[in-house]
Design a protein around this nucleic acid. Structure first.
Lengths: 338, 338
DNA sequence: CTGAAAGCGCTTACAG
DNA sequence: CTGAAAGCGCTTACAG
């Protein structure tokens, strides 16, 4: 049904070997043969059969990507970055979405291994504590890079945002602009990023001589509704709260909306800083200050790192690369100092 | 290096044929053999080689998806829907992003054909006027479904949002709440969706006895900056403009931000309605009324339609399925009628 | 510069 | 219930 090199060979009265070589730019082939083969291939609308080629060469020219959720600004942007690198190196991208389910994560990894991907890019589901399925990838000797949602449990290459420093900068900024009692809406403690951002928050307080009050740290599991309730509860209890630092921008935006609905002025009474610098920061009123995250760049670097690993067969296998972040100050944290 | 059925056969002293059959649940195999094969396979950490299997069976169990931009709410949500259907039917998804470039679109389609995908889901780049590469897919007899970004140039299955009716409803609502001079920020005229939304706008005006003024229809090519300028220009020229209907929510949000920056009250002086009902509608202040679009559902239906086509080999090949939309009224169009 | 032959890992019609 | 053999479409070491 589909056109094969055999068909082309037949049409030209030459051997399939020669057709294959001509198509692949093998140097041995005469210019004349090459041209006629390419012409006929085009005329017959030939497309190489990747499966056959991969089976033979043991290279699938595809990489697998596993993310918790495609429909999020961060991951869809990261995917763009990955795609860019992959495509310019002639790789296909197989994308799977775990919906934060470790079970699905396991299943997808297994089917990507069956698809014989040449490498794997994984951003862990937030509930992924069980490490066996990741460990298995390592044992399979399939090149692997974790990005953003990483874990210290694995000795693999990792690409992360500058979580600690970014958070530290954000909270220092809040303190510098007069905040004395700062809430942190934090993320799942299975993720290195959450923990690092929390560390940044704590260290910044300490560095400025402020006390860390665990009651002001509320794990929200990335859920806006939880954040909303926490803010209401905490502000009722401690009316002197004057700053909020959130583990991501969704929670930052939710904080602003919640405060507004409570009649609390942002930033006059409470300043807010998020993390991510997503487009929603510019839509909410007042605009949300945030730590710029560079999701596309993170995806880009992760893919780069993976390709390096695939090409060089480098033996080092536990690097960590951090993509720099910057604090972007907007209206939500521009408190008038009195 | 990787474990194959031959290795398992060797380990058990049986033939590869039997191993294959046992693994695939062939009824002929004795319960005993099946069990021991599965045990050993697990123990040896065996993963079937999809490439070999596909080459043999002529089924790759993968579908290709081509979208203009992964990092957008609409497409990332649609991808989720697609993924859901694909996975529950044991299909892998190959995703490509064209960045609105017809050249890349062509290239990706070609490489997806090489990857021998069992079917193709395409949302056209906005500049795609040249139809040859799509036509080639049809000729290749690869099942194809266009979704959202469709074109009437092709006789294929299409899944669309309820563009005409949705737009009609939105504009009727604007008129019903007192708007008399309504601007439309429109999309690229290569896309059926843009044209249908524009038609909806025009028909709604006519149905209410209002005149269609072409000067009030501004093609923005989905670009917020263009929208911003258009609004400034038009409101300068026609201060009696009292409504804006935008082809998507990004432009709707941009309209609100622009009007606010001009000191024009929304909705008191100008009402705004967008299209899409994306999360940003609830973030902007005032919240943006919009036509609910159901991107995930569109992806879901498109994938369903593709699988049906792949399974039934149905000969009908030019259906159009429209996913219903609803108008969601929020503050941006709740003008106080005097 | 070109061809014949082997083989990648799997599935399946055929035979028993 | 199980096995031997052929073949999917390609690539490549070997030979000339």
């Amino acid at each position: 049904m589909s056109v094969t090199i055999k068909d082309i060979a037949l049409a030209l009265g030459i051997s399939p070997s020669t057709v294959s070589r001509a198509l692949n730019g093998h140097p041995d082939i005469s210019e004349e043969t090459r041209k006629s083969v390419k012409d006929v291939a085009k005329k017959m609308n030939y497309h190489v059969n990747q499966m056959a080629s991969s089976l033979r060469t043991k290279k699938s020219f595809s990489i697998g990507v596993v993310v918790p959720k495609i429909a999020s600004y961060f991951f869809s942007s990261a995917l763009s970055g990955i795609q860019e690198v992959a495509v310019s190196n002639n790789y296909q991208v197989l994308i799977c979405q775990t919906n934060e389910s470790p079970t699905l994560e396991k299943k997808y990894i297994s089917s990507l291994l069956s698809a014989k991907v040449d490498g794997l890019l994984i951003s862990l589901a937030k509930g992924s504590k069980n490490i066996k399925h990741i460990q298995r990838v390592i044992e399979h000797n399939v090149p692997l890079v974790l990005f953003d949602r990483t874990s210290d449990s694995f000795k693999v290459h990792k690409i992360e945002a500058e979580d600690f420093k970014g958070a530290h900068r954000a909270v220092t900024h809040l303190i510098d602009t007069g905040c004395k009692r700062i809430v942190h809406l934090s993320g799942p403690d299975t993720l290195a990023a959450s923990l690092n951002r929390m560390r940044g928050y704590k260290e910044a307080l300490k560095d400025k001589g402020l006390e860390v009050d665990d009651e002001l740290i509320v794990p929200c599991d990335f859920d806006p509704e939880t954040g909303r309730k926490a803010i209401k509860r905490l502000l009722d209890k401690y009316p002197d709260i004057d700053g909020i630092f959130t583990v991501n921008d969704e929670l930052g935006v939710e904080s602003i909306l919640t405060l507004k609905s409570m009649g609390i002025k942002v930033p006059d009474r409470v300043s807010v800083v998020g993390f991510g610098d997503f487009p929603i920061c510019r839509i909410v009123d007042p605009q949300l200050s945030s730590v710029s995250h560079h999701p596309e760049k993170i995806g880009y670097e992760a893919a780069k790192c993976l390709l390096d690993q695939m090409k060089n067969k480098q033996k080092e296998n536990n690097t960590r690369r951090v993509v720099p972040s910057e604090l972007v100050i907007r209206a939500s944290s521009s408190k008038k100092l009195s």
